[in-house]
Design a protein around this nucleic acid. Structure first.
Lengths: 174, 174
DNA sequence: CAACCCATGTAAATCGTTACATGATTTG
DNA sequence: CAAATCATGTAACGATTTACATGGGTTG
C-alpha cells in the first residue's frame, strides 16, 4: 500500500482536487494512513501520467481555480488489483514508546512526567476521534465505522496501560 | 527518532554487533520500531564515523568473526539529547485498516473473510507477544513492562472491535 | 489588516526496504 | 547433506518529509 493506492481509493467515491484529498485525510482514515501535499501533488501527476486518473481544470469565482481529478477505468482496475494483493505488515511507530523502552536511562520523576503527558495526549486524541466520529457518522459505511471505533479503542487501551504503569511507578516512590 | 537514536539506545546497555542489534528488535521494542540489516549496517558505519560508537573486531572460533560496537561519551550525549528532544508524532500504518476503510468497494462476503483473518492474525500476535513477555519478564525494566503490556492490549482491543464489527456484518447477512 | 483558508506545485534531503553477494559453522 | 544460524556488507530503488515558492480570497 502506498499513496497511489489510497488516493485512487478516495477518487473512487468522487472526483477531488489535491487540496480536497488532503482534507480527506482526517479521522478515521488519517489514523491508518496519512499523506502531505508534498506527496499528494506529485502522486496525482504520476497517476495521471499512468492513465489511472484524468485532470479537469475547474474555474472558480470566489476561490483559486483547481484541478479536479477523476478515476478512469484503468484506475479502477489498478485499485481493485491493490485490494486483492497480499497485505502489507502493519507498523505502529511510536517515539513515545521507544523512549519508555529506554526509560532506565531516565529518572523516575521524568518517567512519571512522560507517562502523565502520554495519558493526557491519548485523552485528547480520544476526544478528537469521538467528535469526528459523531460528525461523520451518518456518511460512514459499516466498515468505516469499524475503523473509527478502532481508533478510539486503541487510544483507550493505551490510556489504561499507561495509567496502570503510572500507578506502579508512583507506588514505588513512597 | 530514527535508527541512529534507537541503535545508540541499544548500545547503552552493552556493546553489540550488527547481528546482535538485529535480534534486539524483538518484542516489545519491535512493536514500536524495527530496522533491517540494510538499515543497521550502514547506520553503524555512520555512527562510527560521527564518533558516537567504536568498533572492535572480535575473533571467534566456532563462528564467523564479528564487529562489536560500543558507545562513546559523545554517543551517550547524543542519545540523551534525543531523549530530551521534542516527541515525534506516533504513526500507526495499517494496510488492513485502509482496505477496510475502502470496504464499500468489496462484497460483504469478502469483508467478512477479511475481518475473520484480521482477528486470527491479531490472536496469533497476542500469543506471540505474551510468550515473549513471559520469556523476557525477569530482565525487563518497569517501563519496558509497560511497552510489553501495551503491545498485548492494543491487539486485544483490535480483536474486540473486529469481533463486534463481524457480528454486525453477519447479522445483516441473515 | 492580520490571520486563515483555498490552491498548486518543486526540490533537496533523508530514510528505509529489498535484493543481491558472500561465506563459515552447526545441527538434525 | 540440507537447512538453519551466524555474520557483514552494498546498491538500486522507492517513498516521504520539509522547506521553499507563490498568490488570491475571506473573515473577524
Amino acid at each position: 500500500m502506498n499513496s497511489q493506492d489510497v488516493i485512487l481509493g478516495l477518487l473512487l467515491n468522487r472526483p477531488r482536487s489535491g487540496y480536497e484529498i488532503k482534507s480527506a485525510f482526517e479521522a478515521p482514515l488519517a489514523y491508518f494512513f496519512d499523506a502531505s501535499f508534498g506527496t499528494i501533488y506529485p502522486t496525482l501527476a504520476k497517476l495521471e501520467k499512468l492513465g489511472y486518473i484524468e485532470k479537469e481544470n475547474v474555474v472558480q469565482d470566489n476561490r483559486p481555480n483547481k484541478n479536479v481529478y477523476s478515476i478512469t477505468d484503468s484506475g479502477r482496475e489498478r485499485f481493485m488489483a491493490y485490494m486483492n494483493s497480499p497485505l502489507d505488515v502493519e507498523t505502529y511507530r511510536s517515539d513515545f514508546m521507544v523512549r519508555l523502552f529506554f526509560g532506565e536511562h531516565q529518572s523516575r520523576e521524568k518517567l512519571i512526567e512522560w507517562i502523565r503527558r502520554g495519558i493526557e495526549q491519548a485523552k485528547r486524541e480520544v476526544s478528537k476521534l469521538r467528535e469526528e466520529r459523531k460528525r461523520w457518522d451518518a456518511g460512514m459505511s459499516p466498515s468505516q465505522r469499524i475503523c473509527a471505533d478502532l481508533g478510539v479503542e486503541l487510544n483507550e487501551s493505551k490510556i489504561r496501560v499507561l495509567e496502570e504503569g503510572l500507578r506502579q511507578f508512583e507506588e514505588q516512590l513512597q
